[in-house]
Lab assay of single mutants.
Amino acid sequence: QVALSRTQVCGILREELFQGDAFHQSDTHIFIIMGASGDLAKKKIYPTIWWLFRDGLLPENTFIVGYARSRLTVADIRKQSEPFFKATPEEKLKLEDFFARNSYVAGQYDDAASYQRLNSHMNALHLGSQANRLFYLALPPTVYEAVTKNIHESCMSQIGWNRIIVEKPFGRDLQSSDRLSNHISSLFREDQIYRIDHYLGKEMVQNLMVLRFANRIFGPIWNRDNIACVILTFKEPFGTEGRGGYFDEFGIIRDVMQNHLLQMLCLVAMEKPASTNSDDVRDEKVKVLKCISEVQANNVVLGQYVGNPDGEGEATKGYLDDPTVPRGSTTATFAAVVLYVENERWDGVPFILRCGKALNERKAEVRLQFHDVAGDIFHQQCKRNELVIRVQPNEAVYTKMMTKKPGMFFNPEESELDLTYGNRYKNVKLPDAYERLILDVFCGSQMHFVRSDELREAWRIFTPLLHQIELEKPKPIPYIYGSRGPTEADELMKRVGFQYEGTYKWVNPHKL
């Protein structure tokens, strides 16, 4: 086992960053958080920038500027975001240094004079007029057009580079997404736009490419001749908990499936790229999406959770019991969808996408189930092999396979070949997804960000279904809070070829 401390991990990262040409360590950078008073800024962006600063992973002359409508001070920003920093008493001095680099400007999102004030403020910072500028839009999409237009007109660096990070949702359907994309691309070049999907920053999602293309053993079996089906799962054990009003506007397909799960599907299904260059990788992902037809209604199961009468606390409440959810809402909190990649490698292999709230566990994984062994000599005792990439929690890679049961006879039983990170790298604290992705933006690497043509294809696949749901308002199937979801989803999976045995229990190697 390799035991690495946080300091050692960050030392390795620093070495990698400083050796590259793309990370300008000594240049002045300004990180501007648009929507600095909001939840995302408070819980994710400010803490992430602090962790990067604490670990010495930001360029040395980096300033952080918050911008929002609320009249706040840096002290206010500190008060609301610091509880999420997880700072230790030993880091007190470092924390003071961090907040000394912070400033805040209040202004409207659609007022040109406010942006001119913001620009004057940035120019007044040390070497601010020639600094590289990175704008993070932690804002609702309704203000994107006004904000990007004003940034472009008043706040661009004339000497350094300018980059803009856009948070999902990128529209509600193909038409609104196209409108937003066309607007942003009329102001910024594609190499300046970073559409963030934080799932692409997760260690195991990034590991998929290495697993596939750096190991000879997987190449020959990664196709329709050997793989019976692919299941991509995202499960949350909690409901909307008072935030249903926002969720109800989008629903589970827009929230998770059309982005996170579809991105994971691309990494499983794509061909080997010409290189690890950002556009070479994204070219292959677009090719996969172009091979997927629009979702067919007979390959869809929609569910909505109801309270568990035997549960406790939140578990007793259904989705419609959330006071922020519109009365009688038919918005799905669970969806199972089957897609097919219609190309030579994957023809006929079902890709089953499942996601839901208020389920029995927290889990995100990719599961490849292989065909049955031909010419069975073990009297149907063999179960199908599976390769599982567990994204969260407890990152893991393992192969479910058959071995001989101890004893006199040739009785096979299920076991696993474990390729888990935790076994080799004991207690290594890896940077989280937002840390990686923000560092990628500083480096100018777009590999783990969504390109406009990729986004367009993703919406093309799901828009007809979303429009049909909005028009017909089908009643989702009720499922109990804390269950596996509607049984109809299991029946759909069985119908397209997935075999669920229920006889195997994964042993978490992190707890051995």
Rank of each mutant, 00 (worst) to 15 (best):
residue 501 E to Y: 06
residue 430 L to M: 12
residue 414 E to R: 09
residue 505 K to I: 07
residue 374 A to N: 07
residue 353 L to N: 01
residue 325 V to R: 05
residue 297 A to L: 15
residue 440 D to Y: 05
residue 273 P to A: 04
residue 464 P to I: 03
residue 360 N to L: 02
residue 376 D to P: 11
residue 407 G to V: 10
residue 368 L to F: 08
residue 259 N to A: 14
residue 303 G to F: 01
residue 485 G to E: 06
residue 389 I to K: 01
residue 282 R to I: 04
residue 397 V to K: 03
residue 478 P to Q: 10
residue 432 D to A: 12
residue 446 Q to P: 05
residue 366 V to T: 02
residue 398 Y to R: 10
residue 389 I to P: 00
residue 438 I to M: 10
residue 400 K to M: 15
residue 449 F to V: 08
residue 281 V to F: 15
residue 505 K to N: 11
residue 396 A to S: 14
residue 298 N to V: 09
residue 301 V to T: 04
residue 453 D to M: 09
residue 423 N to M: 06
residue 294 E to D: 11
residue 293 S to I: 03
residue 433 A to I: 15
residue 485 G to I: 01
residue 498 F to K: 14
residue 383 K to D: 13
residue 306 V to N: 09
residue 316 T to C: 08
residue 289 L to G: 00
residue 403 T to H: 10
residue 358 A to C: 07
residue 488 E to G: 05
residue 294 E to Y: 08
residue 430 L to Q: 14
residue 315 A to L: 11
residue 413 E to L: 12
residue 384 R to P: 15
residue 402 M to P: 04
residue 493 M to V: 10
residue 372 D to N: 06
residue 423 N to S: 13
residue 395 E to T: 13
residue 317 K to T: 12
residue 311 G to S: 14
residue 337 V to E: 01
residue 318 G to Y: 00
residue 347 D to S: 15
residue 361 E to Y: 06
residue 272 K to P: 13
residue 380 Q to D: 14
residue 360 N to A: 09
residue 377 I to E: 04
residue 268 V to E: 01
residue 498 F to H: 15
residue 446 Q to W: 01
residue 401 M to K: 03
residue 412 P to N: 06
residue 274 A to H: 13
residue 483 S to R: 04
residue 416 E to D: 15
residue 270 M to L: 08
residue 415 S to V: 14
residue 438 I to D: 00
residue 326 P to C: 12
residue 450 V to W: 15
residue 471 L to P: 04
residue 470 E to S: 11
residue 489 A to N: 02
residue 329 S to T: 09
residue 437 L to S: 15
residue 510 H to R: 11
residue 508 N to L: 11
residue 364 A to L: 09
residue 483 S to C: 05
residue 258 Q to R: 13
residue 327 R to K: 05
residue 364 A to V: 06
residue 264 M to T: 13
residue 342 E to V: 05
residue 323 P to R: 11
residue 452 S to F: 08
residue 499 Q to S: 12
residue 305 Y to A: 02
residue 261 L to W: 02
residue 451 R to G: 10
residue 414 E to W: 15
residue 275 S to T: 09
residue 443 C to S: 14
residue 352 I to Y: 06
residue 403 T to G: 09
residue 361 E to L: 06
residue 481 Y to H: 06
residue 415 S to Y: 10
residue 265 L to F: 07
residue 457 E to N: 03
residue 433 A to M: 15
residue 411 N to S: 07
residue 485 G to V: 00
residue 511 K to N: 12
residue 304 Q to K: 01
residue 342 E to S: 12
residue 432 D to W: 05
residue 355 C to M: 04
residue 347 D to T: 13
residue 510 H to P: 12
residue 466 L to K: 02
residue 453 D to W: 01
residue 367 R to I: 11
residue 286 V to S: 07
residue 489 A to M: 11
residue 475 K to S: 05
residue 371 H to D: 07
residue 401 M to N: 05
residue 259 N to E: 11
residue 380 Q to W: 07
residue 498 F to R: 15
residue 273 P to L: 01
residue 345 R to Q: 15
residue 346 W to P: 02
residue 335 A to G: 09
residue 388 V to H: 10
residue 482 G to L: 02
residue 450 V to S: 15
residue 382 C to M: 12
residue 393 P to K: 06
residue 458 A to I: 12
residue 456 R to Q: 09
residue 427 N to S: 15
residue 395 E to R: 14
residue 314 E to F: 07
residue 490 D to V: 11
residue 497 G to L: 14
residue 500 Y to G: 13
residue 339 L to D: 02
residue 282 R to N: 03
residue 323 P to V: 11
residue 355 C to R: 04
residue 265 L to Q: 02
residue 484 R to S: 14
residue 447 M to G: 09
residue 490 D to I: 12
residue 425 Y to T: 15
residue 257 M to E: 00
residue 503 T to K: 13
residue 401 M to I: 04
residue 266 C to R: 00
residue 284 E to L: 05
residue 430 L to D: 11
residue 431 P to L: 14
residue 480 I to D: 11
residue 256 V to H: 15
residue 443 C to P: 02
residue 424 R to G: 12
residue 373 V to M: 14
residue 397 V to A: 13
residue 460 R to K: 09
residue 364 A to N: 13
residue 402 M to F: 15
residue 385 N to G: 05
residue 468 Q to G: 08
residue 328 G to P: 06
residue 295 V to K: 02
residue 328 G to K: 06
residue 375 G to C: 11
residue 272 K to A: 09
residue 280 D to S: 09
residue 489 A to G: 04
residue 479 Y to L: 01
residue 299 N to G: 04
residue 448 H to V: 14
residue 418 D to Y: 11
residue 343 N to R: 02
residue 451 R to V: 01
residue 356 G to T: 01
residue 460 R to A: 02
residue 418 D to T: 06
residue 503 T to H: 14
residue 492 L to A: 04
residue 360 N to K: 09
residue 444 G to L: 00
residue 509 P to W: 07
residue 283 D to C: 09
residue 276 T to P: 14
residue 256 V to A: 15
residue 414 E to I: 10
residue 262 L to W: 04
residue 404 K to R: 14
residue 439 L to V: 04
residue 361 E to S: 15
residue 466 L to D: 04
residue 379 H to S: 09
residue 347 D to P: 01
residue 263 Q to P: 12
residue 340 Y to A: 06
residue 445 S to Y: 12
residue 417 L to M: 05
residue 259 N to W: 15
residue 411 N to Q: 09
residue 457 E to I: 02
residue 257 M to Y: 01
residue 297 A to K: 11
residue 476 P to L: 03
residue 476 P to D: 02
residue 435 E to N: 15
residue 387 L to N: 02
residue 453 D to C: 05
residue 385 N to K: 01
residue 483 S to E: 09
residue 360 N to F: 01
residue 322 D to P: 03
residue 347 D to H: 14
residue 354 R to F: 07
residue 394 N to P: 06
residue 333 T to P: 00
residue 364 A to Y: 14
residue 403 T to L: 12
residue 384 R to V: 02
residue 354 R to V: 15
residue 276 T to I: 05
residue 324 T to C: 13
residue 476 P to I: 06
residue 494 K to D: 15
residue 424 R to H: 13
residue 424 R to V: 12
residue 446 Q to R: 05
